[in-house]
């Protein structure tokens, strides 16, 4: 019975991995590819590790395979986010049918507010930093 369950989990894991590979090959855009890759890869390997758990039925092996699952579930979203952020800021082209780019609006509204504030204090800062320089040799 346990062997049948393990083989079912194995086949599910293989199918999810294959789905992720199809996604990364067929998606039009780096961000959609990332979407396919991180989620399905993590779930596929998670299924395989649960199959390892079921097949060996040993405490140490189960802890190790669950450790792999926990580590993948912790790190895969972080890695995906970091790569997507880096790809966005080096202006990797988005898909031409992208409907909504919220980050662009957020950056635009930020830079609209930003120049008004630092422009006023900037001359003061220059004076403040140049005055001690002139004073210091005298003292």
């Amino acid at each position: 019975m346990m062997q049948v369950l393990a083989s079912l989990l194995l086949v599910f894991g293989g199918l999810f991995s294959l789905l992720g590979a199809v996604g990364i090959l067929r998606m039009p855009d780096i961000f959609t590819r990332l979407q396919a890759a991180t989620k399905t890869g993590t779930l596929g390997v998670g299924f395989v590790m649960v199959a390892v758990c079921v097949h060996f039925q040993d405490l140490g092996v189960s802890v190790r395979s669950l450790l792999v699952i926990a580590f993948l579930f912790l790190t895969a979203p972080i890695a995906g986010h970091v790569i997507a952020r880096a790809a966005y800021f080096v202006s990797t082209p988005l898909w031409n049918k992208t409907a909504l780019d919220e980050l662009k609006h957020a950056i635009a509204s930020d830079s609209k507010d930003a120049p008004a504030q630092p422009a006023a204090p900037a001359p003061d800062d220059d004076d403040a930093s140049s005055r001690p320089m002139r004073d210091e040799p005298a003292v």
Binding site: I24, R33, T38
Partner: peptide, 10 residues
């Protein structure tokens, strides 16, 4: 980088 990450996971 994404492809290499997925290869390692697989």
């Amino acid at each position: 980088v994404v492809a290499l990450d997925l290869i390692g996971t697989l």
